[in-house]
């Protein structure tokens, strides 16, 4: 009779290696999935276009966005020299929309990223430590959660006073509890998985386990959730500006432009609708992209 020792090498190495291409890694697979998804490509392209137009506004804009003209007020879309017409003070719409994108996108992205960082930290802390710490953190945040986002943003901005940095702060505070909630629930799920137990068996410290095993698996889902918040943030920021709590005129910002053009809606509806159309397009694109990323990241066994 053969002993196990003699049999070992032959028996063990017969596991037939599947003829698969070399590993692309997790993000490689996600990227490949995204590239195959027409919705992701479309949304991504629209966003890219908007971002390029905003970032390179000084180079691309055909006119000075602050230059007013009393004669050329409210020209319709397609007027000579003014591709998208002019606003109520005769300023070039296309240039203003491009410059406005800079602030609008900034107000969409910055609060979400700040909330993403702060919220993930608190969420992982609450989720991993659990018990009383979790209860205290989550109940405190529930208080914030009780108010609708718009109301909360308005209240905080109102208290802090108008201005760009105050609206950024207000929006960040609005999003932190939402991010914490997601991060906490994902962490709680991950914490119960066997690989965390296996890591504990190896005597790893809580910090090491969080850094290597928890963070990587929590960041993904939270990031996807945060991408979904980008559109909300943009709309809220526009809303704040619309109410006069955000950016001040004559600064071009989509929400503010929508507000000031409001009175022109019967005279020149197309021009008046343009900032709204852009807000709509950008937020839809953010949402669709977030959806695509979410499904691409869902790699089943």
């Amino acid at each position: 009779m053969k002993t196990y020792m003699e049999l070992a090498p032959s028996a063990a190495l017969t596991e037939e290696p599947p003829a698969a291409p070399p590993s692309r890694g997790y993000w490689g697979v996600v990227w490949q999935q995204l590239r195959r998804d027409p919705m992701a490509i479309a949304a991504g392209s629209v966003l890219l276009l908007i971002v390029i137009a905003a970032v390179f506004a000084p180079l691309l804009a055909p006119a000075d966005p602050y230059k007013t003209s009393m004669i050329k007020r409210l020209l319709p879309v397609g007027s000579e020299g003014f591709l998208l017409g002019t606003d109520e003070l005769g300023r070039d719409m296309i240039s203003r929309l491009m410059y406005g994108g800079r602030i609008s996108l900034l107000m969409g992205v910055v609060p979400v990223f700040a909330a993403f960082g702060i919220g993930t930290f608190i969420g992982i802390l609450a989720g991993y430590v659990g018990g009383k710490v979790n209860m205290v953190i989550m109940r405190v945040l529930d208080v914030f959660y009780a108010f609708p986002s718009v109301l909360l943003a308005v209240a905080i901005s109102g208290a802090l006073g108008p201005g760009l940095s105050n609206s950024l702060l207000a929006l960040t505070l609005v999003f932190v509890p939402q991010v914490v909630r997601v991060a906490e629930s994902v962490t709680t799920q991950v914490r119960q998985l066997d690989y965390i137990e296996a890591a504990r068996m190896s005597g790893a410290s809580a910090f090491s386990i969080i850094r290597v095993h928890v963070l990587g698996n929590v960041l993904g889902p939270v990031f996807v959730y945060a991408t979904g918040l980008l559109s909300v943030s943009m709309i809220l920021a526009s809303g704040l500006s619309f109410l006069g709590l955000g950016v001040k005129p004559p600064e071009p910002e989509w929400g503010l432009m929508l507000n000031t053009l409001r009175s022109a809606i019967y005279m020149n509806p197309w021009v008046a609708a343009l900032p709204g159309v852009l807000i709509f397009l950008t937020s839809i694109a953010f949402n669709l992209l977030a959806d695509s990323v979410r499904s691409a990241m869902d790699i089943r066994r």
Binding site: G25, A199, S202, V212
Partner: peptide, 23 residues
């Protein structure tokens, strides 16, 4: 310890050699 669920006991973000070398 070796657990029942082979999938749940491996961190999806680590390669096999990283997972073994972690301890």
């Amino acid at each position: 310890m070796v657990f029942q669920d082979s999938f749940a006991s491996l961190n999806p973000r680590l390669t096999m050699q990283e997972a073994i070398a972690y301890g």
